[in-house]
Design a protein around this nucleic acid. Structure first.
Lengths: 245, 245
DNA sequence: TAAATAGTGTCTCTCAGACAGTATGGG
DNA sequence: CCCATACTGTCTGAGAGACACTATTTA
């Protein structure tokens, strides 16, 4: 760094500019009761006090190293889950979306295994797992209906060609359960043989050797053989347009 | 709005919070000289004065209705192009990416037809179209190398399953030219028959009836039959992993 | 008519969909 | 042994890759 540059930076006052409000919002998804659910929080403060909203909050420039850290912090506060799948969806910024001023929010979605929820789940705030279609019919705070739509659409879209939905399952799962998760996300029935061929050919799961006890024939349990990354795509598409949204 | 809420908003001072700096950066792509090029600007101010950078700037909360408007404004300033294809790539925010403070940038990429550039192209600032691989070898300002990588990767990825690269072509184009654009983005040769079958089956182009004059057999000109949207995907993938990045 | 590029016919191989069949448990 | 669910065998059709072939222009 040159002296000239140092002098410039010393004289620079970042707070002199009226920048936008910067927040992170999260669509935290899990599967319960054979349906996709999202976590909603009842707002305790103005504006939109009393409305249901996606969990989120201001970027704390003194605590958060980056926006990903903000999202992880929010998620941990609300659910106790530390290692979810976390993916940035979109950033929405504009003058009209928050009465406090020009507001910019970075939207993430998180996928968690419902069973992994810690007791910290039941917070001081009123929180509720809501089936996604029902959530979209509520009068959500700000533009959160649009945000939730974007997040759910992204997730549904990815179910067509990626292994992402596996992150909604517990560490050990059966292929029938896996198929059901994909069907929920896609809003369509899938053909069993094709589904199993595809997922086994993708070489991302392996048998544990254990079976899930059942009143009928017990199903083989599988586990992941590697982490599912954001860009992991299967060969082949499921030729179903997601019905969701 | 309730009286209570109005009172809350009147008392609210958005500038009381030290929020992050909010900027928009753009990777503006076009095809020239049989290669993908990106527009770089030489920074005239500190920090990183003199370094090449992606065009961008602060969100102006008094002028820009939303981030999309910021991006369009920047694009118009730099290239004179008003109706590009514009897509948000990612938002990167963190404490260490800008010496002025915690900085958050929304990254967009734009696709333009090189021929559509207005004379306003040659601005007061020093600007240059740089071949993408060469740009990635330069010492770019801030974390712009990472940003450019993200934008180029997104574009290359989409070339596998979407019609997006058509937005790099002029209003009338031949199928051979189209194929070449895909090949540049994918970094691989494509099989002519398969490519033509796919793009014709997608029902997004139609013959104009004109041909492109040539010293050899003239090629049929085509035009788009509809706008290419962000989520428009073909049936079938090109089973080539993009070599680019 | 040669050269060069535009564009086509057609075989093959892969893989998703369909669906009937087999396997394995509990009552 | 019956039922329900897990899982497999195998046919078929659609579509991508390969590549040789034809078409159309100028020099």
């Amino acid at each position: 760094m040159t002296d000239e540059e140092r002098k410039f930076l010393d004289a620079y006052d970042a707070s002199a500019f009226a920048g936008p409000l910067a927040t992170v919002d999260m669509a935290i998804f899990c599967i319960r009761e054979d349906a996709l659910h999202v976590l909603l929080i009842k707002r305790g403060n103005h504006p939109d006090k009393g409305r249901w909203a996606l969990p989120g909050g201001f970027v704390d420039t003194s605590r958060d190293a980056d926006t990903h850290a903000t999202a992880l912090r929010k998620l941990s506060e609300k659910t106790g889950v530390k290692t979810p799948y976390l993916e940035q969806v979109v950033t929405v910024g504009g003058a009209d979306r928050d009465p406090r001023g020009w507001a910019l929010t970075v939207l993430y979605f998180a996928l968690i295994d419902h069973a992994a929820l810690s007791p910290a789940n039941e917070n001081v705030e009123e929180a509720e797992w809501v089936e996604v279609h029902e959530a979209l019919e509520r009068e959500l705070a700000f533009d959160h209906r649009e945000l939730l739509t974007r997040a759910a659409r992204r997730l549904a879209y990815k179910a067509r060609y990626s292994a992402l939905p596996l992150r909604l399952l517990p560490a050990e799962f059966t292929l029938v359960e896996t198929q059901r998760v994909f069907e929920i996300l896609l809003g369509a029935r899938l053909e069993k043989k094709s589904f199993r061929r595809r997922i086994l050919a993708a070489d991302i799961v392996e048998e544990t050797g254990q079976t899930r006890p059942s009143a009928r024939r017990p199903a083989q349990l599988y586990r992941l053989t590697r982490e599912i990354e954001e860009d992991f795509a299967f060969p082949g598409l499921i030729h179903t347009k997601p019905a969701l949204l």
